[in-house]
């Protein structure tokens, strides 16, 4: 049993002891279940479509053009996408999902044959700034 599931059970027991409403329990369980689904998903196999299907709507998305140098958070992308993609200022799609109470997962996609396919991902503590 992973940490998320253990935490979920602990919360359910607490809610039951405190007499909280089932609605709250269902909502929390759904959120935790969604986060567990994201944690269990191999991001490298995802497209933009399958990612949303498996992990739900991301908390943030942004499309931006590749440049030779990008801000620290995105600085690995130019090398990964390759010089042609950078030279043509290819658009990259960035999407972020919470994967736990403390961490986010950002996945970047690049457009290939009208499909947004996996380029890179980064799991990061949601306290961090870059």
């Amino acid at each position: 049993m992973d940490g998320q599931k253990r935490r979920m059970i602990r919360r359910l027991v607490c809610y039951a002891l405190l007499g909280l409403t089932p609605v709250l329990v269902v909502t929390t369980a759904k959120e935790i279940s969604a986060m567990s689904a994201i944690q269990d998903t191999d991001p490298t196999s995802l497209t933009w479509t399958t990612a949303r299907g498996r992990m739900g709507a991301p908390s943030e998305t942004e499309d931006f053009p590749l440049m030779p140098e990008l801000p620290e958070f995105r600085n690995a992308l130019p090398d990964l996408a390759g010089p042609d993609a950078v030279a043509s200022r290819e658009i990259v799609r960035e999407a972020t999902w919470p994967i736990s109470d403390t961490h986010n997962r950002t996945i970047w996609f690049q457009n290939r044959n009208d499909a947004w396919v996996y380029l890179h991902h980064f799991d990061w503590k949601n306290d961090l700034e870059f």
């Binding site: 620290e72 958070f73 600085n75 690995a76 990061w124 961090l128 700034e129 870059f130």
Partner: peptide
């Protein structure tokens, strides 16, 4: 290009 430089305020 890694690790990613960051600041953890908290």
């Amino acid at each position: 290009k890694s690790p990613t430089s960051s600041v953890d305020w908290n």
